[in-house]
C-alpha cells in the first residue's frame, strides 16, 4: 500500500492502514459489523455529510500537479464511549459507510484495538484482496503473448 509521508509515525501509519481497509471495504462486507460498531453509546461530532474532493493528477503522470475534476466524498466524525475520536472520508455518497468507518476508526484507537483488528479489519482486508484478485484474473486472460512469424526471405538468405 502506498503511503505518502517519508517520516510518518508508526501509529499514524497503522491508522492509515485501517482507514484504507475501511474506505476500500464493500459496504456489504461492512454491514454485518453494524450492530457491534454501534453497541456502545457514541456521539456524532460531525454527522455524515456529502461534499466533494478536488482530484489531482500529474502532467505526464510524473510532473507537476493539475486539477482533473472532482469526486463525491462523504465524511463523518464520531466520539465513542472511550472518548476516542474517529474520522472517515469515503468516496461516494454512502452516509452509512461513512458513519460505520468513523466508528470503526474510533474503536480501533481504543483499548480493544487488537480484537477489532482480528475480528473486522483482517476479514475486510481478505475480502478486498480476493475481490481484487478476481478482477485482475478476469483481465489477465486478455494479456497478449506476442510471437513473431519467420518471414520467407529470411529462409532464402
Amino acid at each position: 500500500m502506498t503511503s505518502y509521508h517519508d517520516n510518518i509515525a508508526p501509529e499514524i501509519r497503522a491508522r492509515q492502514q485501517w482507514m484504507y481497509t475501511l474506505a476500500h471495504a464493500d459496504i456489504a462486507d461492512l454491514m454485518p459489523f453494524e450492530t457491534q460498531l454501534k453497541a456502545g453509546p457514541y456521539q456524532l461530532i460531525r454527522p455524515p455529510e456529502t461534499g466533494m474532493a478536488l482530484v489531482r493528477g500529474r502532467m505526464g503522470a510524473t510532473g507537476a500537479p493539475f486539477n482533473l475534476g472532482e469526486m463525491t466524498v462523504t465524511r463523518c466524525v464520531v466520539k465513542n464511549d472511550e472518548a476516542c475520536v474517529g474520522y472517515s472520508y469515503i468516496a461516494g455518497r454512502d452516509k452509512t459507510h461513512a458513519e460505520l468507518a468513523a466508528l470503526a476508526d474510533a474503536h480501533l484507537q481504543g483499548a480493544r484495538r487488537h480484537a477489532w483488528v482480528c475480528r473486522m479489519v483482517e476479514l475486510l482486508d481478505a475480502r478486498r484482496q480476493s475481490r481484487r484478485a478476481e478482477a485482475a484474473a478476469a483481465c489477465a486472460g486478455t494479456r497478449v503473448d506476442f510471437f513473431t512469424l519467420l518471414r520467407g526471405e529470411d529462409d532464402a538468405a
Binding site: G51, M52, A53, L54, V55, R56
Partner: peptide, 23 residues
C-alpha cells in the same frame, strides 16, 4: 449538481503508476 456541493479538500496527485490495471 456539482455546484451545490461543498468542497472539503483536495487529493494528492493520483499515482497512476500504481494503477490496478484493467487494460
Amino acid at each position: 449538481y456539482r455546484a451545490t456541493l461543498p468542497r472539503f479538500c483536495a487529493s494528492l496527485p493520483l499515482d497512476t503508476g500504481a494503477m490496478r490495471i484493467e487494460r
